[in-house]
Nucleic acid binder design. Structure first.
Length: 164
DNA sequence: TAACATTCCGCGC
DNA sequence: GCGCGGAATGTTA
């Protein structure tokens, strides 16, 4: 089940499973016509409730505010290592940052800092799972698989300074 | 096995 | 200070 979310930054697409929100896609200019009529199945009341939470959480974050409540996240995709990393990311508050090394240390593998980058890139729920708040050491911007422009934009929304 | 969203250190400018 | 090269490093497909 996937549903659109209109925001000031464009139309995101949220994907749901029976366990919760499984994926969030950035707006894609090559796909402006939202598959509205294509969604043949009506969302269940549960998914509508989740979608409502997702919408508010996403809009809050894009406005630089901390979401009051998140929908249940289906992180069953992904390896155990990746889920550990994503859990750490969820605890980074709005406007705060961590380095890849700090995240690695938090999950008890201080030397896996390189792999943390990989887990961030595999994050299926950007923005809500704040992969953009992970910077390289000494606050350099590092990378971002969905495009550095998105990372810069998200950091700017939260007034996070970087060295670059 | 090869690819990384890293980090650190040493060098030359 | 900056850029560059190279090494160590864990996880993934």
């Amino acid at each position: 089940m996937h549903l659109p979310i209109s925001t000031t930054a464009g139309t995101f697409i949220a994907h749901y499973t029976t366990h919760g929100l499984a994926r969030l896609d950035f707006p894609d200019d090559r796909r402006p016509p939202v598959p509205q009529s294509k969604s043949s199945v009506e969302p269940s009341t549960q998914i509508r409730r989740w979608h409502d939470l997702t919408t508010r959480a996403l809009q809050a974050t894009l406005a630089g505010r901390s979401p009051r409540e998140l929908p249940p996240l289906d992180l069953s995709v992904g390896t155990e290592f990746q889920r550990e990393v994503w859990q750490v990311l969820l605890q980074i508050a709005v406007g705060q940052t961590q380095s890849y090394g700090e995240v690695a240390a938090k999950i008890g593998r201080p030397k896996a800092l390189r792999a943390v980058g990989g887990a961030c890139g595999a994050n299926p729920i950007p923005v809500l799972v704040p992969c953009h708040r992970v910077l390289a050491a000494n606050h350099r911007i590092g990378g971002f698989s969905s495009g550095l422009d998105w990372k810069r934009k998200l950091l700017a929304i939260e007034r996070i300074p970087t060295n670059s």
